[in-house]
């Protein structure tokens, strides 16, 4: 499936939820300090297991970084 990850359209194996997608790209979903948006809408952590992904979706994964 095609997912636009961090602005870049890429081909991934099928993932039917946010959690499944995270494990595809080797991100620990239980790690604190991460937020995810699907098509410009923030998806609360509690919904990562159930929130479906569709071909062409845009996904943003963010975390805190050093800043002023």
């Amino acid at each position: 499936m095609r997912i636009r990850l961090a602005g870049e359209l890429r081909e991934f194996d099928e993932a039917h939820s946010i959690n499944a997608f995270l494990s595809l790209i080797n991100i620990d979903a239980t790690k604190n300090g991460i937020a995810i948006a699907r098509n410009g809408v923030v998806i609360p952590k509690a919904k990562w297991q159930t929130e479906p992904l569709a071909d062409g979706d845009s996904i943003e994964i963010v975390r805190a970084s050093q800043g002023g």
């Binding site: 790209i25 080797n26 991460i34 943003e60 994964i61 963010v62 975390r63 805190a64 800043g67």
Partner: peptide, 18 residues
């Protein structure tokens, strides 16, 4: 303290200010 919000860098996972 202030922190910025930035895209998760898949290549540099260990560099976490938190």
């Amino acid at each position: 303290v202030t922190v910025a919000i930035r895209r998760f860098n898949l290549k540099e996972k260990s560099n976490d200010v938190l």
